[in-house]
Simulated scan of single mutants.
Amino acid sequence: MPSDPGLRAVVFDFGGVLITSISNQIGDVAASHAVDPAVMHEVLLGPRVSWPDHPWHRAERGELAVADIQAELTPWGEAAGIRLRGDEMERLLAPGAYSVVGAMLDRVDTLRADGYRTALLTNTFAEFRPTMERDLDFDRFDAVVESFAVGSRKPEAEIYVAAAEMLEVGHASIVYLDDFDQNLSPAAALGWTTILVGDPRVALDELDAILGTSDSAPK
């Protein structure tokens, strides 16, 4: 059973936590245009905050098909002074561009065996679901919260509320791991304990420290 009875669930992001980040692909696309990767990231994936009309964000909310993202990116590229070539999404989403972080998946299994509820919380597309199920096995999780399915994406508050409801726990009972700090702030505001993931091993050590301290209050 959980060491701290107040902490009952652990929630994992997908990209950059359970799998390696797609930052390398963004860097490659940026290099081919001779622009800064941060600029290309904003053009292709949108601003750090949620944006109503960015095509990537719309697709993650289930409002736009993945196949239609590329055509909708032209004005975003022009605004940044970049002439897109039309293959940026294909390169970004190319098969085999990431690998599963085995240590993270192993910890999901261990946590469930120890009595914690677990969840996958991810910004993703309906078209990508079969690939995720193949790589992760959704049976590992008590809840799978996908942005396209709930019509809300991180860092919008609604998706975190949906996750807590699906886990059937209070916000203060949740520990959450994500590799983007902007996705952690709304969770922390709700009472979740948060871990910013850089090195997976360091993040797992931090998780162990949090769950192993019975007198610690959720942050």
Score class of each variant (00 low, 15 high):
88 E>A: 02
126 A>R: 08
57 H>G: 05
143 A>C: 10
212 G>R: 09
7 L>M: 07
70 Q>D: 14
73 L>R: 07
125 F>I: 05
112 R>P: 01
112 R>I: 01
17 V>F: 04
190 L>P: 12
15 G>S: 12
12 F>S: 08
196 L>M: 10
109 D>Y: 00
154 K>N: 11
216 S>I: 14
183 N>R: 07
51 W>M: 00
138 F>S: 08
20 T>L: 06
130 P>C: 04
148 F>H: 13
105 L>G: 11
3 S>L: 11
168 E>F: 06
199 D>L: 03
118 T>Q: 07
199 D>V: 09
100 V>C: 02
147 S>Y: 02
13 D>I: 12
34 A>P: 00
51 W>V: 03
32 S>F: 10
134 R>I: 00
133 E>P: 02
176 Y>A: 08
124 T>S: 09
82 I>R: 01
68 D>A: 15
126 A>K: 02
52 P>I: 05
9 A>K: 03
142 D>R: 06
189 A>L: 15
13 D>W: 11
15 G>H: 10
125 F>K: 12
125 F>C: 02
219 K>F: 14
6 G>V: 03
210 I>C: 06
166 M>I: 02
132 M>I: 14
33 H>E: 05
17 V>W: 01
28 D>N: 12
89 M>G: 02
149 A>W: 08
94 A>M: 08
157 A>W: 13
73 L>Q: 04
211 L>F: 11
198 G>N: 14
174 I>Q: 09
151 G>V: 04
135 D>P: 00
173 S>C: 12
143 A>S: 12
183 N>M: 05
19 I>A: 07
5 P>Y: 01
36 D>I: 05
127 E>Q: 13
27 G>Y: 07
156 E>C: 06
178 D>T: 10
92 L>P: 04
112 R>Q: 05
48 R>N: 09
115 G>A: 06
112 R>S: 07
197 V>Q: 05
87 D>P: 00
131 T>P: 00
203 A>V: 10
128 F>G: 00
217 A>Y: 04
198 G>M: 02
